[in-house]
Design a protein around this nucleic acid. Sequence first.
DNA 1: ATTTTAAGAAACCAGTTGGTTGCAAATATA
DNA 2: TATATTTGCAACCAACTGGTTTCTTAAAAT
Lengths: 106, 106
Amino acid sequence: MRRDIFQAIADPTRRAIIALLALQAMTPNGIAEHFDSTRQAISKHLRILTECELVKQEHQGREIYYHLEIQKMKEIDKWLEQFRKLWEIRFDQLDNVLSNLKKNKK
Amino acid sequence: MRRDIFQAIADPTRRAIIALLALQAMTPNGIAEHFDSTRQAISKHLRILTECELVKQEHQGREIYYHLEIQKMKEIDKWLEQFRKLWEIRFDQLDNVLSNLKKNKK
DNA sequence: ATTTTAAGAAACCAGTTGGTTGCAAATATA
DNA sequence: TATATTTGCAACCAACTGGTTTCTTAAAAT
């Protein structure tokens, strides 16, 4: 199945997992302790995150540590880039409005 | 139904609609012309985008213009903020590695 | 060697999604 | 007024989602 990072971050549980893994690599059981749902549910989320290469596995004995591929997160940032210009322009306009208000006050 | 912006941008068609509306406000029919699917399908996407307040309607006679609420996009940027630090650190480390390689070469 | 533990895989289920078609309301035009 | 256009809404459908339970494999501990 075709996975992409935007689909991956659509789920709030997965966003929470991403935030956890940003701090340190963890095992599925370790992650599951932070949530109400079962290990298997977490495991499915991890599979989706793995499929879109947002996380990577690291086998250590019978434990599997998952760690975040932080570089992948930049894809979102890259997509946002095209809009960042726009909202900065709006801010500039707001600045103008504010300074005009100030002038009129004087 | 509870909508959030992350779910809204999960669908590639919706991301394309957002990109279109970033350029100019458009009617459902106008938007649908850019895609293969039916107007009704686009209309459903617009409803989802409206529910999470990413787009706003502007009635003009019997036409409804949809325009992007660019400020809302900043929510994604805000969420990314916590990770931006991390990937910048990685870049710094890479810089160090590169300059060390350079030194050793001399 | 047996038992415990960590984790993935498969089967299943209810709810959601993205899409369709058909219809009704509102506005514009003849 | 009658007709055409733009749009939203409801009903329906197949596919996907997030979750569960059960089972298997493999490593570690006893």
